Amino acid sequence: MKEYIAVLSIAGSDSSGGAGIQADLKTFAALGCYGMTVITATTAQNTKGVTAIHSIPPMHIKEQLLAIMDDIKPKAIKIGMLDRPEVVEVLVEILSYYPQIPIVFDPVMVSTSGFKLIQDETIKAIRQKLFPLVSLLTPNMDETSILYGKEVNNLESMKEAGEYLLQELPEAILIKGGHLDESVIRDLLYSKSNGLKVFKSDKINSQNVHGTGCSLSAAIAVGLALGKDMEDAVDFGRDYVNKAIFYGKDIITGNGNGPLNHFFNPQKQIINEMD
Results as ranks from 00 to 15, higher is better:
Y4H: 15
A11Y: 07
S13F: 00
D14Y: 00
S16M: 02
S16A: 14
G17M: 02
G17T: 04
Q22P: 05
D24P: 03
L25I: 08
K26T: 01
T27I: 10
L31Y: 11
G35S: 13
T37R: 09
V38T: 01
T42Y: 08
T47Q: 00
T47Y: 03
V50T: 06
T51C: 12
S55A: 15
S55K: 07
I56L: 11
I56Y: 02
P57W: 09
K62P: 03
E63N: 11
L65D: 06
L66D: 12
A67D: 09
D70Q: 15
K75R: 14
I77C: 02
I79M: 10
I79D: 03
D83G: 04
R84D: 13
E86H: 14
V87I: 15
V90A: 05
V90C: 10
V90D: 06
L91A: 00
V92H: 06
E93W: 14
I94N: 08
S96L: 15
Y98A: 12
I101W: 04
P107Q: 10
M109G: 03
K116S: 09
L117Q: 08
Q119N: 14
D120F: 00
K124A: 00
I126K: 08
L130A: 00
L130Y: 02
L133P: 04
L136S: 07
Y148N: 10
K150G: 12
S157E: 11
K159S: 09
E160N: 10
L165C: 12
L165R: 12
L165Y: 11
E168V: 00
G177D: 11
G178Y: 01
H179K: 01
L180H: 04
D181W: 10
S191Q: 12
F199A: 09
D202G: 07
I204G: 03
N208E: 01
V209H: 02
H210M: 01
T212Y: 07
S215L: 07
A219K: 02
A219V: 09
L224I: 07
L226Q: 11
K228P: 08
D229A: 07
D235R: 11
D235H: 13
R238I: 12
Y240L: 09
V241I: 15
K243V: 03
K243L: 06
A244S: 05
I251Q: 02
I251W: 03
I252H: 02
I252A: 09
T253L: 15
N255C: 14
N257A: 10
G258S: 07
P259D: 07
F263T: 10
F263D: 05
K268V: 00
Q269K: 12
